[in-house]
């Protein structure tokens, strides 16, 4: 426990000293300010009389008749912003925590840590928990602030939007596990970031694996696409889940595997990455 607390403290001190915390706060705040100023709702007697997004009136047939429920409109706004927060949250988190392992493994630094009576796996995992704590707090700040703004402007309380932060944190946990694995192998922050972002975009493409497979004729390529799809995390599906969960809509048609399999295979990928990173770190010679 002492090791975990010491690592979390060190990660936060580093984030503060290197302006990461400040950059995190400023970027997130900018996003929140843009959201707060972009959404302008005109509510009369608890009913929505008009809505503007970035100064443009949002037109709706139901709105014209004045029968649109404000709850529905808020769900719509939140449904649009939650997937954006999903991407913003992941990018900020990976960018600010991917260095944790490469910097630990630097010559002259690693000796200071490994000469302590701490087994290597708990040392690595405590860095992971420290990174996740930092990233999770930022997601909570981002999602929580926007949620509060919506509550303040509309008096509509949708806990689903707040809870969508959990899915974002889950996606970050998965990609950070991958960044840790790449970091242990390469000791390079740049490669860790590139690898994690690369997998993020690749899985976005692989979400259309059925269409890709249908377009392919070579069975080996079809098998490869299928294998990649099922072995890599399902970031696109998670993003769609955020949208569906917040907007209370059905999942898009292309996600025809339900929510169970994407979540389970993504979790398996994260656990696999962490397990492999731990094993390699334990075996590694410095």
């Amino acid at each position: 426990m002492r090791v975990l607390v010491a690592n979390i403290e060190e990660v936060f001190r580093e984030a503060a000293a290197r302006w990461t915390l400040m950059a995190y706060f400023i970027l997130s705040s900018l996003f929140i300010i843009v959201f707060a100023s972009a959404v302008n709702l005109d509510i009369v007697d608890g009913a929505l009389a008009g809505a503007k997004l970035f100064g443009q009136s949002v037109q709706s047939r139901d709105m014209a008749t004045g029968t649109v429920r404000i709850e529905d409109l808020v769900s719509g706004f939140e449904g649009v912003f939650a997937p954006i927060l999903f991407v913003v949250g992941i990018f900020l988190a990976i960018f600010s925590t991917a260095h944790l392992v490469p910097r630990l493994q630097e010559k002259g630094t690693i000796d200071l840590y490994l000469s302590r009576p701490v087994p290597r796996i708990p040392l690595l995992l405590s860095r992971y928990v420290a990174g996740m704590t930092l990233a999770s707090l930022n997601v909570l700040y981002l999602v929580g602030s926007i949620w509060l703004i919506v509550v303040w402007k509309t008096e509509v309380v949708h806990f689903r939007f707040l809870l969508s932060g959990g899915i974002i944190i889950f996606a970050i946990a998965t990609l950070l596990a991958l960044a840790f694995l790449i970091g242990v192998v390469t000791s390079s922050t740049a490669v860790s970031i590139m690898g994690s972002y690369g997998i993020f975009f690749l899985t976005m493409i692989l979400a259309a694996h059925k269409q890709i497979e249908a377009a392919l004729t070579n069975p080996i390529w079809i098998w490869m696409v299928k294998t990649l799809y099922w072995s890599l995390p399902k970031t696109f599906e998670l993003q769609m889940m955020v949208y569906s969960f917040v907007a209370q809509k059905e999942l898009p048609e292309q996600i025809n595997n339900g929510v169970g399999l994407p979540i389970a295979t993504t979790a398996a990928f994260a656990i696999g990455c962490l397990a492999l990173a731990s094993w390699l770190f334990k075996k590694k010679e410095f």
């Binding site: 002492r2 090791v3 607390v5 010491a6 403290e9 060190e10 001190r13 580093e14 503060a16 000293a17 290197r18 630097e106 010559k107 002259g108 630094t109 000796d111 200071l112 840590y113 302590r116 009576p117 701490v118």
Partner: peptide, 22 residues
């Protein structure tokens, strides 16, 4: 050729590595 994290003060360095030593 040890490299302590440059962002820590001497007191913080002793605190973090001391706790890691148990």
């Amino acid at each position: 050729g040890h490299r302590f994290p440059g962002y820590l003060t001497a007191r913080q360095t002793l605190s973090i590595f001391g706790r890691m030593s148990g």
